[in-house]
């Protein structure tokens, strides 16, 4: 997967529609639904990235997407676990950012 092929135009429009509709829904829905919409958008983005690249090159991305897809649904029946997951999720992304930065030096 190269930077140019991470997301196609159709996929970008799909993500755009999701984000704009989510922004509208945030006006009337419980506040924590907004967190769900964002992490769901992250999942969609990862799905697009994985479908446009070789999975073998993106073990971390595939594993993180699987974790997101499993734990995002906890919002509906295990909010404590869901919030704990969100609080640790950025750490996972930061670790991958750090690894990528080190690799590009």
């Amino acid at each position: 997967m190269s930077a140019e092929t991470a997301v196609t135009e159709d996929e970008a429009f799909e993500l755009l529609a999701h984000l704009v509709a989510s922004a509208e829904l945030c006006i009337r829905e419980p506040y924590y639904y907004g967190t769900f919409r964002l992490i769901d958008a992250a999942s969609k983005l990862m799905g697009f990235m994985l479908s446009n690249g070789a999975d073998t090159e993106h073990e971390w991305l595939a594993a993180f997407k699987e974790e997101v897809d499993t734990k995002k649904e906890w919002m509906m029946w295990d909010r404590e676990g869901y919030f704990a997951f969100l609080q640790g999720a950025t750490g996972s992304v930061a670790g991958e950012l750090k690894r990528r930065a080190a690799a590009s030096i």
Partner: peptide, 8 residues
């Protein structure tokens, strides 16, 4: 589905 964030 694209404009329905609640549709998983």
């Amino acid at each position: 589905k694209m404009i329905s964030p609640g549709m998983l």
